Simulated assay, not measured.
Amino acid sequence: MYMENSEPVFDQIAEFYDMTRRPPLKNEIDAIITQLDGSKTVLEIGVGTGRMSIPIQEKGFDVTGIDISARMLEKAREKGIRHLVIGDARKLPFLDSSFDAALIVHVFHLIEDNVKVMQEAGRVTRKMVMSIVREHEPSDEYRRQWRKEILKIFNEKCVQMGYRLDSGGFLNHRQESAITEIFKPSIKRLIDRNTRTVNPENFVDRFRYSSRYISLRKQIPEKDLEKIIDSVGREVSSMGIKPFKTTTAEYLLVWNPKELV
């Protein structure tokens, strides 16, 4: 299922959601458009505010977006997405083979039963199901270790303030690429590989971008969350973690719908 309480959370963060996300990369859109050659109708599952669908629609494709959040869909409608439906990705309200293609981008980490979502995507499409996923290079083990440690500190500080957190959602961001372990794609095409220097202290600052999300998701007042983040920042600074390089690869994945149902 979707992450617990995801519908009301995304309804409430719709106003500032786009401010916490980068625009789609040109490489991403180009890869999708190239793959869609010969297709006309596209369903984006988890369309959100329409960040991915808008440039695809502008290229002349007939795009339909579905999302569980009514407020996110309102934002997508304001941007000009013509066909929008509120609904559950686990039970899509469309007939079999209704679309040429389905697109699922940065959604898998929000859904528990990805198998059902993929089966539904395969059911309603004729030609292909696509996704864009990010993978951290194997050399990023050090990154994973300190990230896990910082999240542990964050969790402990929350508990000290009287807020008990579960292990789901924000604190358990599953690798989206794990979907390939369940369904092997027929195409896996590299879109972008980026190497950057990371300062672990800056990672703590990222919590500030998500503070309203965490506040709503975990029912932590923002003023208390700020105190928690400040406390985490001080402890991380005292750990002496040195900046290091991290490499992320982004891939376009394509599946044959017949192999999903």
Rank of each mutant, 00 (worst) to 15 (best):
R123L: 10
Y213K: 07
D62H: 09
F244S: 08
S139M: 11
I111C: 05
G168A: 11
S139Q: 14
P93C: 12
I241N: 00
E78S: 13
N114G: 14
K116H: 12
T20N: 07
I179F: 03
L260T: 07
L165Y: 03
R234D: 08
D62L: 10
V159N: 12
L253F: 08
V107Q: 08
V63Y: 05
I86H: 08
I191N: 02
E4P: 01
V204K: 06
E74C: 13
K258Y: 11
R126A: 11
P93T: 12
M130T: 00
N199I: 12
A178M: 14
K75S: 08
N114M: 11
T248K: 05
P221D: 09
F170M: 12
H106I: 11
I241K: 08
M161W: 12
V85C: 12
M72I: 12
A76Y: 10
G60F: 04
E58T: 07
L110H: 15
F183N: 02
R51V: 01
A101K: 01
I33P: 03
K116S: 15
S39Y: 02
I111F: 03
S177F: 08
I104T: 02
T197F: 05
R77Q: 14
I150V: 15
M118K: 06
T180P: 01
N114E: 11
R196C: 10
I13A: 00
S139W: 05
F94G: 07
D30P: 03
F99R: 05
D230I: 06
R193W: 01
G122C: 10
K127A: 01
K40V: 10
E235I: 14
I29Y: 00
I191E: 05
M52P: 03
H83S: 15
H83A: 11
G46N: 02
R82P: 00
G50L: 00
D11M: 09
L216S: 05
G240S: 09
S98P: 03
K218M: 09
S131V: 04
F154I: 05
S186I: 15
E137G: 00
P200G: 08
D224Q: 10
D67M: 09
R208I: 13
I32P: 02
A76N: 11
